[in-house]
């Protein structure tokens, strides 16, 4: 295994391998670290942090859909202070990079969180695309001018490279990608969940208490691959690709489309050891294909 070079670089930060956890799917790492050593991962991206604690949406917060998950957690978290005092110290025990996903309700709140995180984490991921909160979130992420402005202002407070997480709920994702680039983003991550809805036909009521939620899982993978490819074609920023990755070959597909790293999300919900297993499967894939370095795979899609 050691003969394959898995290292990748995101805006000058070296990840020992391209496997990252997608925000919100592993909490802050406490639970899955009982299933495997988090040092096996390129980076851990923590659950969205807001300035103050958030209680989240009413349950039910999850529904199964064909090859997918619809969720409406609503950014439940214990707030920035708790993260800095508790979660961060635990994550530091592992030899992996830490990505703080921040999800403030206003530009000012995001600036304050980014400022206070300082260089306590390796990277900051700005969530401008959460579909489950009324304020902030997707309200920022679907308007290119807003994406540019929020990126600029948060970047100004960041002491570490800034990743902007893009929403797929737009007509043309290259516009928001370019806007984030113009605003000074150091990297992009995509895609966040697609807005969806499931109705119980026996009761005529939506299954989620929030009525609508974010769709993830293999169901959205082709959309995510297409968007990663489109964004890779229009910017030179490193991309963390995600959307329904459940195997090493799925991870390879995103890298071929142009992603530098990949995030595993819904797969963690089904299998706590998914991150480790996907890393090993990606290594096997590279061996099988005779590719010595994962970076050689990036953007190798042979367009018809």
């Amino acid at each position: 295994m050691n003969d394959i070079d898995l290292t990748v670089s995101i805006a000058g930060v070296t990840l020992k391998n391209p496997i990252v956890t997608a925000s919100g799917t592993v909490g802050n790492g406490w639970e899955i670290s009982r299933y495997y050593d988090l040092s096996e991962l390129g980076a851990v991206c923590v659950k969205s942090i807001t300035l103050n604690p958030r209680e989240g949406n009413r349950p039910p917060r999850i529904a199964e859909t064909p090859s997918g998950i619809l969720n409406s957690v609503g950014l439940q978290n214990k707030g920035l202070d708790f993260f800095l005092k508790n979660d961060l110290n635990n994550l530091r025990k592992f030899d992996t990079k830490i990505i703080a996903n921040i999800s403030g309700g206003t530009i000012e709140e995001n600036c304050e969180i980014a400022g206070r995180l300082g260089n306590e984490v390796d990277l900051i991921e700005l969530n401008v695309s959460c579909p489950n909160v009324k304020q902030g979130g997707i309200a920022f992420g679907t308007n290119p001018a807003m994406v540019k402005e929020i990126t600029q202002r948060v970047k100004d407070k960041c002491k570490v490279p800034l990743i902007v997480k893009l929403s797929p709920n737009v007509t043309d994702i290259t516009e928001t990608a370019k806007a984030a680039r113009q605003g000074g983003a150091d990297a992009l991550s995509l895609i966040n969940t697609l807005i969806g809805m499931k109705i119980d036909v026996n009761t005529a009521k939506p299954v989620l208490a929030n009525n609508i939620g974010g769709l993830s899982g293999p169901a959205i993978r082709p959309i995510a691959v297409r968007m990663v490819w489109q964004v890779a074609c229009c910017t030179d920023l490193p991309i963390i690709g995600m959307g329904g990755i459940i195997s090493g070959e799925d991870a390879a597909e995103f890298i071929i489309a142009g992603a530098t790293a990949v995030a595993v999300g819904s797969a963690n919900i089904v299998n706590p050891a998914a991150g480790l297993e996907i890393k090993n499967q990606l290594t096997d894939y590279l061996k099988r294909k005779g590719i010595q370095s994962v970076s050689k795979l990036r953007g190798t899609v042979k367009i018809n």
Binding site: G24, P59, I62, A63, Q76, P272
Partner: peptide, 22 residues
């Protein structure tokens, strides 16, 4: 009982209200 995701406490999906918090 609640509709559940990961089952191990990581995803914050299967909540119930207890003493005012989820």
């Amino acid at each position: 009982e609640q509709r559940m995701g990961c089952g191990i406490g990581a995803c914050s999906v299967c909540v119930c209200k207890s003493k005012g918090e989820y």
